[in-house]
Design a protein around this nucleic acid. Structure first.
Lengths: 107, 107
DNA sequence: ATGCTTGTTCGATGCTCATCAAACTTATCA
DNA sequence: TGATAAGTTTGATGAGCATCGAACAAGCAT
């Protein structure tokens, strides 16, 4: 559904952003919770609606965009609905330990 | 020199704050650089003036307070001037790997 | 077709916070 | 006793951003 949707099933992904951008993205409680739920989802794609509570759709979409642009998540389309995936491997390569330790501390 | 200065040489320290507070503290570029310089200082006390550039004294003092209240640094007085120290051990205990990996990514 | 659902975009609003200058405190030095 | 230096605090200002509702786009159902 997005205007800039690619034809195939998965968005082209941006490189993982610099540390400051990643930390800024993770410093918001709503986004931190989104990442927590993505990690709890066993690293598979999770549908949008399962990633937030208590904020409006438009706010959630804004946070998705922030996470995506920081290189933390990837967007894909399964069963016609949007899903998000934690980019564990790329993050580990670019910023070893950072996201892993944060996710661990989140339990 | 602070109004709430204890009599002895080192401030009483607050507990390490929760993950969200710590991330929020580290998400600012000025504070991130302060932490980088503290880490580069080999975990010893570093004098205030060596921890920042490009911002005013009052701004720097504000950032010091933020780091201290997040439990990331400790303030002490050596040779009559204020020093700051990275609380490596307490941070590692409260949030294993988080600050360590961030500092490592900072090199 | 018509509607319903899902997600994005836009515009507006309000709050948080980074920043500075100025005044103040304490200590050190002449 | 001044005078200077180092940090802190306060008050004000401005920018960024989290939030929402509304309008829109795309897909699926009936």
């Amino acid at each position: 559904m997005p205007l800039d949707t690619p034809v195939d099933a998965t968005d082209t992904v941006a490189p993982v952003a610099d540390l400051h951008t990643v930390l800024q993205a993770l410093a918001d409680p709503v986004r931190l919770e989104m990442v927590r739920r993505l990690a709890a989802g066993g690293d598979g794609p999770v549908r949008c609606s399962a990633l937030y509570d208590g904020v409006s759709k438009s706010t959630a979409s804004h946070h998705f965009k922030t996470l995506r642009e920081a290189g933390i998540t990837r967007r894909s389309y399964v069963d016609g609905v949007v899903h998000h995936t934690l980019r564990r491997d790329e993050l580990e390569e670019a910023l070893p330990g950072v996201v892993t330790s944060i996710v661990t501390a989140l339990d």
